[in-house]
Amino acid sequence: MKKITLFFTTIFSIAVFAQQKSTGTISLSNNVPITANFTLNNTTSQVTLVLTGPSDRWFGLGIGIVSGFGMDNGDVVVFTTATTPNLTDRNFIGTQAPAQDAMQSWTTVSNTVSGNVRTLILTRALTNSDTNDFQFPYATTNSISFGGVRASSATMNLGSHGGSASAGYAVNVPFTTLGVEDFSLNASKVFPNPSKGDFTIQTKTFLNKVNIYTQTGVFVKSIEVENNAENVDFNITGLQTGIYLVELVNDSQKSWKKVIVN
């Protein structure tokens, strides 16, 4: 009976863990330097968006749009330091700057810059009551199209993106259900990498501690993680440039990642 109970407990655990699906990291067409990674979590009813773009100008991501949509309507998130908050939930209304929604749905979990690349980790409910927002019902959201725009020159003042050269698209990107291995510490990601010393660890499980070592195994520092967080920022600026080893630790697992300080 114990073996049968254990078997069904294991199957149930796998079923629970498998309640996520992701696009993976997708680059836009036309060599526009914007990437997006959507992950839907049916257990928490949240969508996580990892969005990268240029660090020296405003940029945005239109969700559920395809090339040729005309900017007359559509859900969009925009990052610019010219507004407070820096990230705003908006709606395309033609060639004008997109209007800000009354309901601000996205929450910024992390905002890091390495060189000329800004990385944002954002979360939002899968579905909500805002008619301007693209909805992500877990059972029926099996693919997604999106487009990114950026200022044609270095400016944080929101305005025209400057033509088709500053717009790119990804069409009918499929979602892939994540398996059990995707939820282990081995599946964790550290970015941006390389970096000047500011890094973010993103996991699908949780972390208790992060240990940093030199490539030759000399201990550098240890970071205690509060509340078993899934996303952890750490800083090793001031160290010599080179390769460092990052040990990720939780109650049941350890995993090693390599980072480069440049």
Rank of each mutant, 00 (worst) to 15 (best):
T39I: 14
Y244P: 11
N37R: 13
F92S: 01
D56M: 08
F146H: 04
Q135Y: 06
T241I: 05
D130G: 03
P192Q: 01
K258L: 01
A187H: 09
S55P: 13
T52C: 10
F59W: 15
E224P: 07
L40H: 10
N227T: 10
A170N: 13
I243V: 15
I93M: 00
N235Q: 12
F146R: 03
G197I: 06
F8S: 01
K254A: 03
F175D: 10
D233C: 01
A165T: 00
N31K: 15
N262D: 09
V232K: 03
N193C: 04
L248F: 09
G24E: 11
G238Y: 11
M156G: 03
G159K: 00
F199L: 05
R90Y: 01
L6A: 11
I243L: 14
S153A: 13
F8L: 02
T241A: 12
I144D: 01
Y138K: 02
N228Q: 14
A151K: 12
F146A: 03
Q20N: 09
M103E: 07
D251A: 14
I63M: 06
K254W: 06
Y244F: 15
N111D: 15
E181C: 00
V149G: 13
F191M: 07
G68L: 10
Q202G: 01
V218Y: 08
T141E: 04
D72A: 10
N142H: 04
Q104T: 02
T35M: 09
M103S: 07
P98K: 06
I11F: 06
T5L: 05
D233V: 11
Y169F: 15
T176S: 14
T83D: 09
Q240Y: 06
L51K: 04
S222Q: 15
A82T: 08
N30H: 14
T23P: 11
G179Q: 11
G163V: 07
N208L: 14
F219I: 00
S22Q: 11
G148Q: 09
Q253G: 01
V16R: 02
S188M: 13
A102I: 09
I26R: 14
N262R: 11
L158Q: 04
V32E: 09
F59I: 13
L61P: 11
T155W: 10
F7V: 01
N41I: 07
V246T: 04
I121Q: 04
I4N: 00
N30S: 13
D251W: 04
R90M: 00
H161D: 07
A151M: 11
I93Q: 00
F219P: 02
K209D: 12
F136C: 05
I144T: 03
S110P: 05
T9S: 09
Y169L: 08
S222G: 14
S255H: 08
D182S: 15
T39H: 06
V180L: 13
V76E: 02
D182V: 09
I34G: 08
G242Q: 08
T214G: 13
T80E: 05
N157E: 12
T43C: 04
F219G: 00
N157F: 12
R150A: 09
V210Q: 06
M156E: 13
A170H: 14
I260R: 08
G68T: 11
N128V: 01
T176E: 11
Q202H: 06
I63Q: 03
D130F: 07
G147D: 03
S143T: 12
N111Q: 08
F175Q: 12
Q253C: 00
A36N: 13
D89G: 04
G147Q: 02
